[in-house]
Write a protein that binds this DNA or RNA. Sequence first.
DNA 1: TTGAAAGCGCTAACAT
DNA 2: ATGTTAGCGCTTTCAA
Lengths: 337, 337
Amino acid sequence: MKYITIIDLARRLNLSKSTVSRALAGDGNVSKETQDRVRELAQQLGYTRNDMAVNLRQKQTKSIGIIIPEIVTPFFMHVVSEVQRELNGRHGYRVLLAQSNENSDIELANLRMMEEFRVDGILLSVCSSRNNIPEYLRLKEKGMALVFFDRIVPQFSASKIEINEYAKSVLLVEHLIEQGRKKIVHIAGPEYIYNSTERLRGYKKALAKNGIAYDPTYVIPCDLAAEAAAAKMTYLLDNNIDFDAVFCFTETQALGVKKLLSKQKIAIPDQVAIACMSGTTLSTLVHPTLTSVEQPVDQIASAAIQLLLEKIENPAAEDRKIVVDAQIKIRESSAVD
Amino acid sequence: MKYITIIDLARRLNLSKSTVSRALAGDGNVSKETQDRVRELAQQLGYTRNDMAVNLRQKQTKSIGIIIPEIVTPFFMHVVSEVQRELNGRHGYRVLLAQSNENSDIELANLRMMEEFRVDGILLSVCSSRNNIPEYLRLKEKGMALVFFDRIVPQFSASKIEINEYAKSVLLVEHLIEQGRKKIVHIAGPEYIYNSTERLRGYKKALAKNGIAYDPTYVIPCDLAAEAAAAKMTYLLDNNIDFDAVFCFTETQALGVKKLLSKQKIAIPDQVAIACMSGTTLSTLVHPTLTSVEQPVDQIASAAIQLLLEKIENPAAEDRKIVVDAQIKIRESSAVD
DNA sequence: TTGAAAGCGCTAACAT
DNA sequence: ATGTTAGCGCTTTCAA
């Protein structure tokens, strides 16, 4: 592809390239007339600025990276898609995406990659709150604009969008209790994921608030996969453990649970209610038998953008934390599926 | 962020920057010894090459763009995620993502954006097979490596990954027929989407092959949204049109249909079977009551990469078309959900 | 085997 | 209001 440059324009107009540059940039110091001539020719010849050159000159890339644990997930897809749209459009940023596959080593490689790409900033949702801390620190100290969102690292000081998992969790579990559920199993996530521990905390709180004794056998640590959750259900059933609701850490787990319970002819939600935090409309559409709390995806995205831009603008700026707990909508489960 | 440059290295080693550059590049014309010294220091100081400079120099960006109609969709997400991984890793490409939201104007803007970003190539899945053809042509003639995938434009000559929608469609509908379904409604997509017309063609073929008369009232053009599909169901029900299966263009439509039929207490799949092409594992997990054909996502991704890289390598290369129809797996529907 | 110099396209002092 | 110059970090002739 042959591209027109400001030199091409300058030559044709008998101007210096600086004047052309200024005219294009809308710098005040250029006569209205030349400005018009330049812009018209640029238009006509289909000139587009070469960002590589500009960026080399200004020492920035006008690109940011997003690193998430898992891409094929309604929640993350929505956030990404929103950040994408906003940053492309209004700020002219490129956004690079990478997924870590819930694997800290891949996350590390992704971080390095973004650094090599010299992105101006990174939006990060971590795999684990402990594995890559030295790397986060290194990047931060090097001056990289690094903003955490959703899957944050509580003990690491940085700008972050924290989602109030605790509050959501309390709300959801209390909702189950209000429906008359008393024996609520919690399929928990791994303890190296902050969100998971917060949700567990919320679960306990909700029980306590409602005078239900906390029974540790009801809390079952579990992998993120649907199959893992299904296996835990089998275990409960095989051991004749009595329960009337299951609160899952992830949507995917909830689906695994649902599948298994249906297979065992257990009526949902009549005999057992299933609950989880749901990403989005897609999820809502997909499984109405799940009781869930909707996440304020757009709000999370825009908060993330805001904090990231702040950090890019002024790398020395103080860290800020935005907590999103928003207007939470509980979606009633229904037998209709 | 302060980055080390080859000049930094050169100074410390009392070499010229050209030698350093050569040593780093692995150019043969440099003594083993200097090469080692340079590389060691580079390593030690954490040097990473500034791609902006390289690219400016070599007139390429080492980045490609992917433009898809809808991001929050298991099928596209998987393809993107796969292309992402492959191109990042093995070829050092940046990949930029944009979604058109099923809107041709946005698609046009996205195309322009990618051009401004000076991506080396574009992977495109179109919104409509007629709206932006002049733009595709302009880009192609300008020498942009442009490869279509999945949602292709049949009458536009370019490199493309075509998915054999026709074959898949025949297969799926015949499968329904084998299950004893005879009154199969087809919720069709808009005719400006090639895939939609192909699937319709397959639907007709399957009926013909099995001696079932084609009834135009059974073919219902419909928007892509779930709600639209649900509305069509209401229409059929209200008009007492008798049917025992519904074959939908999109997964999302299928979900809409499913939801509405369940609400009307129509047993799925006992009374009415629902079928569609399904993206991936996620979908499989989510709605087992849907009969579906799985798409060979990885194959599509790797074919797309191959064609794109070919075009980038040699823009003058002839257009190639890869047709993916692959080993098709039908997933049986089941009452369990 | 190494160095010197030019140049990719642009911006930003510093002149004029 | 416009031009001149230097330089961002790198690769690549051309010379030595």
